[in-house]
Design a protein around this nucleic acid. Structure first.
Lengths: 245, 245
DNA sequence: TAGATTGTTAATCGATTAACAATC
DNA sequence: TAGATTGTTAATCGATTAACAATC
């Protein structure tokens, strides 16, 4: 954090010198106890682009590319250089004039913003086809998640392991949640039990849901976050586009 | 279409009477051969809301609700009545002053806009866990799709049927596509073969892809539509929210 | 130094919301 | 008729794009 902090102190000095009344910089980055915090209200549009940046930068890393300008990055992603710089500026200063961005460094910064370095703990509730598919194929570690356990009601899967993850009885959920930290629950259960299960889990303290039930789940507690995946919405969007091209 | 047409003729008369120079109505609904076509450029934001409307209206139907106002619908969905009316007005006039909207009628209109009544034909390429999950659980018929066949390279699944859908060898894809209409291909194959397979299928005439490979696929032909599902982007968005609440 | 590229401010564009006449 | 609610125009808000001084 040291060099970034130095940069900001310098910039503030510049502002004072030029007798700027504009205080946007102060609004954006609050210096608190020596650490630099980011802008308060990040728009949803920006947040949704962060994973795309992360994906692109990971790809660039793999291709061995060391540095990139906002212009080239924009070209690769089909967005403007302005938007990229505007987006990044919500979180800090990651580039260098005349040079651009160091790919590896920028990837790491955005990964940090997304929380991939926080070792979040995750369990899966519902181990049907979709649950199996995710456990077997989804790169949880690469997104900063450790999968600790899975739960189901079916005797056929209880007691087995899927890709090294033990499957327990859904009856043991309460006990498990009391004894283990769980940041996110993946809901891959039938629609009919979705809201009830979610309510029960919220009551047990779960604050994050990755929801595949095709139902809009929600909670009155704003600290409980739902990320809903709506397969049908996605396919219908495609249906619209092929029906109206 | 008759009563709608009458409405528009009347409205145009009104405009003339009041000596409006504003021609927005003409831009919006082109009368062609007696049928009313919709506005040309529908924004992505509007299109992405259409499936949500459809989902909500299906639910209202199931609950036996006959009519609804934009205000109540907005309340249920957490959006403004203004936005709802603005959205619908891109496609026509589906309501009645003083009454609101007939739920069943509106559902059917939006379904029609989305193309659920077009009987699109779909095949799946890649029958792993995710393919199985979709074939078993996804309500293709409700979204207007008929699943005709699935393809894979693995001897273990070739020749089997999944939920009534026959699984053929991927070697037979070319022949199949030459002999059958296919509107959409579901791509549930490994990332490593994604772009190559997509290119091959585009060359064979496929114009719609529901892409689960976690890769950004694209084609130079603007008529080829890709709907990409990015599981990782979704989970990272959730990661951001729980890391920054 | 000259050229390149950032972070930031200003301008533009588009999407959402508010207001209201028309009308059921 | 009076009340309710639409479809549409106008106003507002926010997001994207352009421009540019700062500076590596």
């Amino acid at each position: 954090m040291k060099p970034l902090q130095k940069k900001i102190v310098k910039k503030i000095d510049n502002l004072r010198k030029r007798e700027y009344t504009n205080c946007k910089l102060f609004n954006k980055k609050r210096l608190m106890g020596g650490t630099v915090l980011k802008k308060e209200n990040i728009s949803d549009a920006v947040i949704r682009r962060l994973p795309r940046y992360y994906r692109q930068l990971t790809d660039l890393c793999a291709r061995g590319i060391v540095r990139i300008s906002s212009h080239s990055l924009g070209n690769e992603m089909g967005i403007t250089a302005s938007q990229i710089r505007q987006d990044f500026s919500c979180f800090g200063e990651f580039g260098q004039q005349g040079y651009g961005y160091n790919v590896e460094e920028l990837r790491s910064e955005i990964g940090h913003i997304l929380g991939v370095d926080q070792d979040h703990h995750l369990i899966m509730v519902g181990v049907g086809h979709l649950g199996h598919a995710l456990l077997q194929n989804f790169p949880f570690p690469q997104t900063g998640f450790t999968v600790n356990a899975a739960f189901d009601v079916s005797e056929a899967v209880i007691g087995t392991t899927v890709n090294g993850i033990p499957v327990y009885s859904a009856q043991d959920l309460d006990t498990y949640l009391q004894q283990n930290r769980v940041d996110v629950v993946v809901l891959t259960i039938p629609q009919s039990v979705a809201q009830d299960t979610a309510d029960r889990l919220v009551a047990l303290g779960v604050r994050g849901f990755w929801n595949f039930t095709n139902m809009e789940l929600s909670s009155s507690d704003p600290d409980v976050k739902f990320e809903n995946i709506h397969f049908a919405d996605s396919l219908l969007t495609l249906s619209y586009r092929i029906a109206n091209r």
